[in-house]
C-alpha cells in the first residue's frame, strides 16, 4: 500500500499539462539536423526542462516547440555552432505562467 504521505507520482505529460501553452503557428526553435549528426554530447536532450529534444536513430534530433518554457537552456548548452536557432515565439503565444 502506498502511504498517504508518499509523493503523488506525476507523469511527464501530466506535469506539462499543468502549464498553459498558447501554441503559435510557427516554430520558434529550429534544429539543423546535419549539425546534430556530428554531435556526441547531445546536451539538449537531457538539459531541456520541457524534454523537447528527442534523439533519432539516424543521429539527428527531433524537436518540439509547443511546450517550450522559453528559457534558452538549449542554445546555451549546445556546443555545435548554429545547430539550434532559438528566438521568442510570436507575441501572445508560448508559455503563460499563472502560479509561478
Amino acid at each position: 500500500m502506498i502511504p498517504a504521505s508518499a509523493p503523488v507520482p506525476v507523469s511527464f505529460e501530466d506535469r506539462m499539462a499543468t502549464v498553459d501553452f498558447r501554441v503559435a503557428a510557427d516554430a520558434h526553435i529550429t534544429v539543423d539536423g546535419d549539425a546534430c549528426r556530428g554531435c556526441s554530447t547531445r546536451a539538449c536532450v537531457t538539459a531541456c526542462p520541457a524534454n523537447l529534444f528527442v534523439p533519432m536513430a539516424d543521429g539527428g534530433i527531433l524537436f518540439n516547440y509547443e511546450q517550450c518554457f522559453e528559457c534558452g537552456t538549449c542554445y546555451l548548452v549546445c556546443d555545435t555552432a548554429g545547430a539550434i536557432t532559438w528566438r521568442y515565439p510570436e507575441g501572445g503565444h508560448g508559455v503563460a505562467f499563472r502560479r509561478s
Binding site: S5, F69, G72, T73, L76, F97, S100
Partner: peptide, 30 residues
Amino acid sequence: PEQLIAGLKAHPAVAPLVAGGELVEYSAHL
C-alpha cells in the same frame, strides 16, 4: 531537471514538508 526535483522532494528532511502536495504548475527559467 525534474528528476533532481523528485530527489529533493524524496529526501527525508524535505519529504514530510511537501507530502501530499498536488502539482499545479511546473516551470523553468534561466
